[in-house]
Design a protein around this nucleic acid. Structure first.
Lengths: 198, 198
DNA sequence: ATTAAGTCGTACGCGGGTGTACGACTTACT
DNA sequence: AGTAAGTCGTACACCCGCGTACGACTTAAT
């Protein structure tokens, strides 16, 4: 029987090796979220692993970040997959945004890190999944006449991303309460998506 | 007679020194906008100045960035000062945002650099001027009933910042044309600022 | 129980950026 | 014309993070 296939390409590895790999990824997430310039040494220490061992699994710092980024995006995408996008596009948007918010609220700092050390194409490719999901919803909403058509669809997509991140910043700056965030985000986006009055 | 007082604390400096200081700041702006990790050596070279001379005027890298950041914000603030904020708040918002856009479009990358090497308090203090300007306008617009009151004023302020920056990102990503940006920004913010229909 | 895979710590070399010391030279002010 | 201020280039010491080599040890798989 094939050895356990946890997540990404660590098939055939020994059990303790697999455990360490995920421990390292978890530690990297925690460290990098707290400090984007976190050391490899720091990450290894928090993972309860020698620095050398880390290099045994990840060939370089960038490699580690890339793996971590991929894993995180995959998880997020899988979470978004469960959102019901049928029915009134406006309500669907609310649901989709609510889920997105929860994800971004956890991982927003990781994006900063990725943007520094990974090629831009890598970043964009990772976002493609969620993007398409939003884009599809926008198209349907437009067809049903409940979303505005006077602005580029790509802009409306970007707006979701932006508003959610802005809320995260306001929250960490203490200018927005956590429990108010979902409402504020939704109210803002619904207003921005609605067809202009005139 | 006191020697020329160009901008910030270089009173009493010799003429060529003042010239070099501004040359260094200009070079730093160009370099850092292109590459946030630009060297001191690179900056000095582009300024046509020896590295040592640079250290004669700026005690450290952070000091240089701080000075540059201050100068840029001051200029931006002075430019925003000329915007007419009277009359219909909605029209005033349009004017204010249009000016803000021009500024952000030039200097947005500098903000990234500052956020990395300067203490957060420094960043916030620098933004305080423009912030207050927007906040005042929002308050008036609310009193006149043309701006929504169901969202925190601080959020509406942040929204301007965010939407403008988002447009800048879309532009540099080639997903938005330069001449469309002002309209897109304005349309988005007007919709987000208007009182909810219900 | 044997073997291969994995881990550990220490230590080293490398590269790159920073900030400073020095002495000679050039430029600006009065 | 004289003096102080400024500039130059080279060179150096310093720090820090990365990636690797080595040998000994411990753990998991059959």
């Amino acid at each position: 029987m094939d050895r356990t296939t946890d997540a990404v390409g660590q098939r055939g590895k020994r059990a303790d090796a697999q455990r360490n790999i995920t421990a390292i990824l978890d530690a990297a997430l925690e460290c990098l979220v707290r400090d984007p310039d976190a050391n490899i040494a720091e990450i290894a220490r928090r993972a309860g692993v020698g620095r050398v061992t880390l290099y045994g699994h990840f060939s370089s710092r960038d490699d580690l970040i890339d793996q971590l980024f991929t894993r995180t995006v995959d998880r997020a995408d899988r979470a978004l997959e469960t959102v019901d996008l049928t029915g009134d596009p406006r309500a669907a948007l609310s649901r989709l945004v609510a889920s997105s918010w929860q994800i971004v609220d956890q991982f927003r700092h990781l994006l900063d890190v990725a943007q520094r050390s990974l090629p831009p194409a890598r970043i964009r490719a990772a976002h493609e999944g969620p993007m398409r999901r939003i884009a599809g919803l926008i198209e349907r909403g437009r067809a049903e006449g409940v979303f505005r058509t006077d602005l580029p669809a790509t802009w409306l997509v970007a707006l979701v991303h932006t508003v959610v991140h802005a809320a995260a910043d306001e929250l960490s700056g203490g200018r927005l309460a956590e429990q108010d965030a979902p409402f504020v985000i939704d109210a803002t986006l619904q207003a921005a998506y609605a067809p202009p009055a005139g």
